[in-house]
């Protein structure tokens, strides 16, 4: 294992990212997403890595020491893969979203013990605006037609179909992201195109509250939520936020909402590390993207910055704790947390995926 020397960071804490192993798919150079999945075979359950390129998805099994073996490659059809949808506690199933600019299909990739073969199944089609994998083999999605929006929970069967479907009452505005609520298993939150946070009761499907995020935090995307002491703490990011002198360069923020009154207050702002703000675009007066995309697990956030670096923030401390510089042979394109363990999955533009221990 190679210990990386990290760039100097603002703030007192400097955690380390230790390179554990590297996965290189020589047949692919177009990684679009990476994730992890629990996979059980021959009585042994292991955390495997899943990589996706536009036309195929590969399952990698760990070998000792620090080596990975391709277990299965699923070839997809004409619609490109655009996202892996992690299912937090599911085993032997990979969920993927396919489409062009928007999600048009959701498919399951799985192993059928009945037929002793790997297979894929179509779960949902439509104009899907947002999808999130939930605990207990469930999936929530928002689907838009010209007339209406459908927000639906789909329970997955062991054979790759849908066991049960439940509709949630949709808000008027399009839901663009979902997040489960830690500490309150029956609650679900979402963020809408009109920059509101909505709260549902998962059991009854009721829409409990719609709360404005406020003009200070434009184009918010929710990542995680935590219920504590009568408040709802929602982790939001602003992928297209403008730089603000007052707040620095916020990448993630934690907003406390009082669901009783719908009033809110920002409690923590995680700024971009010094020298890694958005690219300076000549003639652009604002709306310069500060980062490309990110991921949050527990209280850790990570994102690929427009500088080509990957940053890690501790949301409780409110500052950047680790940074992977762009380096060679290519800049970073993907940053994801493993669904278990303290692994950071970092994807390069050339298709290489590096596993770091945080």
């Amino acid at each position: 294992a190679e210990q990386l020397s990290l760039a100097p960071l603002d703030g007192p804490a400097q955690e380390s990212l230790q390179l554990v192993s590297e996965l290189k798919d020589l047949s692919s150079s177009c990684a679009v997403d990476v994730s992890t999945v629990w996979w059980e075979a021959a009585g042994s359950r292991e955390l495997c890595v899943v990589t996706a390129c536009e036309s195929s998805v590969t399952l990698w099994k760990p070998l000792v020491p620090d080596r990975w073996e391709k277990v299965q490659i699923w070839q997809l059809g004409e619609i490109p893969v655009i996202q892996i949808v992690p299912l937090p506690d599911a085993c032997n199933v990979v969920c993927i979203a396919l489409g062009d600019l928007e999600i048009a299909e959701i498919r399951l990739l799985l192993y059928s013990s009945e037929h002793d073969s790997f297979k894929q199944s179509l779960l949902k089609t439509g104009t899907i605006k947002a999808v999130l994998g939930l605990k207990e083999r469930r999936l929530v999605s928002s689907c838009r037609t010209v007339q209406e929006q459908q927000v639906e929970i789909t329970s997955l069967s062991e054979t790759g179909g849908s066991k049960d479907r439940q509709t949630l009452l949709p808000p008027e505005e399009t839901v663009l992201a979902f997040a489960e609520v830690e500490g309150m298993g029956e609650a679900l939150v979402g963020t809408t195109a009109a920059n509101s946070v909505v709260v549902w009761n998962l059991k009854t499907g009721q829409l409990l509250r719609k709360m404005p995020v406020g003009y200070s935090y434009p184009a918010s995307i929710c990542h995680r939520a935590y219920a504590d002491s009568g408040l709802l703490f929602v982790v939001l990011s602003h992928p297209h936020a403008k730089e603000s002198e007052a707040r620095g360069n916020p990448a993630f923020c934690v907003i406390a909402f009082n669901p009783r009154t719908a009033r809110s207050r920002g409690v923590m702002f995680s700024s971009l590390p010094h020298g890694h703000a958005g690219r300076q675009v000549p003639g652009a007066s604002g709306c310069v993207p500060l980062y490309l995309e990110g991921d949050v697990r527990d209280t850790l956030a990570t994102a690929v910055l427009t500088s080509g670096a990957i940053a890690v923030w501790d949301l409780l401390l409110g500052h950047c704790t680790a940074l992977l510089p762009p380096g060679s042979p290519g800049t970073w394109a993907l940053a994801r947390w493993a669904t278990a363990g303290a692994w950071l999955l970092a994807g390069r533009r050339d298709g290489t995926v590096c596993l770091y221990q945080y």
Partner: peptide, 23 residues
Amino acid sequence: CSESDLGPISLNWFEELSAEAPP
């Protein structure tokens, strides 16, 4: 965060809003 910022806080907000919201 305090009640002066956010208004009256209820520990049972989820149950209360579920009882009040349309089914």
